[in-house]
Design a protein around this nucleic acid. Structure first.
Ligand SMILES: [Zn+2]
Ligand SMILES: [Zn+2]
Ligand SMILES: [Zn+2]
Ligand SMILES: [Zn+2]
Lengths: 130, 130
DNA sequence: TAACAAACGTTATATTATAACACTATGATA
DNA sequence: TATCATAGTGTTATAATATAACGTTTGTTA
């Protein structure tokens, strides 16, 4: 329900950088980019990243240890994420497909496990790299 | 098509350990477990892991940086993987659901990207932890 | 204002993964 | 058989990613 949320100074700095970026950013690359703003240590980045993920403003691309801004104004606090990743140019795009999202959210295993969250990563070649 | 493949000494050692394990194993935990067998360096582990993944015998759980044996005798060389992960006890199970697999393999984005591979990770609480 | 929670800054360290180089075994091929 | 390519090995070093722990500061709320 995309509620407006206010972030702290460091959180906002990190969010701004990720939102401006064209692609996924790695934690240490964010760090190097904000040292002029007085952020000096990985902890400060990782703490901000944690909060932003929790808030659904960014997502972690697990296969790349990198972070992207959420395209969907908050992704229900990151409970259902899907990405397409080009294996050549490494461009990442968040997939917003209502049907896919519903299908996966409803999916349940035989084993009696109730899922609260999923993350899906598709790999291939983008138009340009094909 | 699960073709029988022969592995080198180190590859076999690593595969054996992962197959015997009850849950996902981390690279360095594998390393500590095979030092008696003459494997001394991370490189040796990571090289074996790479080959085993390529062969579809094991999978990497990206959200945990850990490795599990393939349950489905080879997963078409790891092109379509899905896992359920308990957020409490961290147990991981490979999901073998023909319908899910077909659905995702057929899924294509609007953007004109053709997918070759996907990895899906579900999170929740298992029966025991519920 | 007192109390508490959240955020901050900092140093140190743990964990995960790769680079680089020299050596060995194997099998194909000319 | 010589030689060549390929895959695997062993080793040292280092890069990249992430967290622990501690004390201070700031912001909220009672
Ligand atoms: Zn999102
Ligand atoms: Zn591309
Ligand atoms: Zn498998
Ligand atoms: Zn559990």
């Amino acid at each position: 329900m995309a509620q407006t949320q206010t972030f702290s100074k460091n959180q906002q700095i990190v969010l701004d950088i990720i939102e401006k970026a064209k692609g996924p950013l790695k934690a240490y690359s964010i760090l190097f980019n904000v040292q002029k703003k007085g952020i000096n240590a990985p902890q400060q980045i990782y703490r901000a990243l944690d909060k932003l993920i929790e808030a659904g403003k960014i997502h972690k691309i697990e296969s790349k240890n990198a972070f992207v801004a959420c395209k969907n104004s908050n992704c229900e606090v990151s409970k259902a994420t899907a990405f397409s990743i080009c294996e050549s140019c490494e461009i990442v795009d968040e997939i917003s497909d209502e049907k896919l999202s519903k299908y996966l959210s409803k999916f349940n295993e035989k084993k009696g496990m109730k899922f609260k969250r999923f993350n899906l990563e598709f790999f291939g070649l983008c138009k340009k790299c094909k």
